[in-house]
């Protein structure tokens, strides 16, 4: 994922802000990392360049 996607993304459950923590980047894209929602205290993964924002209950 490109970092500019962060302008649009929100938590699928509470629609609150997400905090990106990129652990691996390539060619300006986040390949691995996490997206953290403080309100829900929930962590979502970025895996193989794709943010996984399925709500936890639906995984």
């Amino acid at each position: 994922m490109k970092k500019d996607l962060m302008e649009l993304l929100c938590c699928p459950v509470c629609k609150g802000e997400l905090e990106l923590d990129a652990t691996r980047e390539e060619d300006g894209e986040v390949v691995e990392g996490t997206l953290y929602c403080e309100d829900c205290d929930e962590t979502y993964a970025v895996d193989d360049g794709i943010p996984d924002l399925l709500p936890p209950e639906a995984r």
């Binding site: 994922m1 996607l5 699928p12 943010p51 639906a58």
Partner: peptide, 15 residues
């Protein structure tokens, strides 16, 4: 072009 995993009923996008 980008891809996101998510569910139709819980879209992870701002209003």
């Amino acid at each position: 072009v980008g891809y996101v995993r998510g569910d139709f009923e819980h879209l992870p996008f701002d209003d």
